[in-house]
Design a binder for these strands. Structure first.
Lengths: 193, 193
DNA sequence: CCCTCCTTGATACGCTCGTATCATTTGGTA
DNA sequence: TACCAAATGATACGAGCGTATCAAGGAGGG
């Protein structure tokens, strides 16, 4: 199973379908149509459906963690509050790309509950990778290990929940930003103590 | 379409399947087996699958809102912090019942993204009902309308996110409670200002 | 009594799914 | 050139799904 261009194309097609219509939209035939290849090709490069989906989810988990690591490397050390503010900026589903990302996250969440064997592991890697990175950044800017991890997970949880409220129409984008701003204003003074 | 015992039994079977294995586990035949009736009966009382699922989700949304209204009626007026503390106590998936409830919530969340027509509406009713009630309680204990709604949604978002982290194994129950305790300690002083 | 309508049952149809099979092309190498 | 393995294509198969259809009990009023 070599890492060919074709295989990458097919995995990207899976990601697009996943982002657009959730898990149910991902069928071998739909992937073939989306990638504009034959069904046989999807089988050839992805072998079985579970294997293909697992590989895609792993890739997605890796990509999201790497995106954050690159971001941290680029911006250098920031204050915890800046780190968290930036995280919310990126995590809230304000544009199409982050909406897709959130949708995929929700799919993985559901899959992790339905079928813990396959997506559960990818989802856990996704969450723990993000959590480790975020808590690492927070720790390196002065927080204790325990406080950093706790805050990292709190921020991730809040971002996920607010993202869901936004995507389900309970919260407008502006309201979400106001909510986060309010949250950060409460959090800020506590961090610099 | 009368509200018969049979119909209730069938809807409860759907809820059990939903809580156990997610949406994919809900097939007409599986519902029949779970309710120990024939496939024809499921059709008879539930007509089509979408109608049955929609009815179940509506019922679930109503039940969750009613549960909260009853709770508020029973306990009477509390301080905002007490209300929120109680909310987290109930919302965190610490026992089997609330785990099932959270699982169903995640299913609805996923369905709302995949198929906004059916479950999307039920999910929105669920969220807005909960949000209205919670913000109403907070408002009646001294907060402004805007602040109450914002805080209600923030609390709901955090509870959902933390619930997901617990159920995916990122957070132990004790860690989750510590996280919430820490959050409430930060929130408390702000509320009494 | 029997007839009618609500209830229950058994089975069939058409569809889509994942997967398997057989055949063909292509590209590098002995 | 000959060849072999990787790559691609067309099609078939069995299973599970939602739904429809045909048929049989079963109770209550004319």
């Amino acid at each position: 199973m070599v890492e060919s261009t074709r295989r990458t194309e097919i995995m990207e097609a899976v990601e697009r379908l996943l982002a657009r219509g959730g898990l149910n939209a991902v069928t071998m035939r739909a992937v073939a149509a989306e990638a504009d290849v034959s069904l046989r090709l999807v089988q050839y490069y992805g072998s079985t459906k579970d294997a293909l989906l697992g590989a895609v989810l792993d890739r997605l988990a890796d990509k999201s963690v790497e995106r954050w690591q690159a971001r941290a490397r680029q911006r250098g050390y920031e204050s915890p509050l800046e780190v968290i503010t930036a995280f919310f900026d990126e995590a809230l589903p304000t544009d199409r790309a982050s909406q897709d990302f959130h949708r995929v996250g929700v799919c993985m969440e559901g899959l992790a509950i339905t079928d813990p064997d396959m997506a559960g592991q990818a989802y856990q890697r996704h969450l723990s990778g993000l959590g480790d990175h975020l808590s690492g950044v927070l720790k390196s800017s002065g927080l204790s290990a325990k406080a950093a991890r706790r805050l990292a997970l709190e921020v991730m949880a809040l971002a996920h929940g607010v993202g869901t409220l936004v995507m389900s129409g309970q919260l407008s984008e502006a309201e979400a930003q106001a909510l986060i701003k309010n949250y950060l204003e409460r959090l800020g003074p506590q961090l610099s103590r």
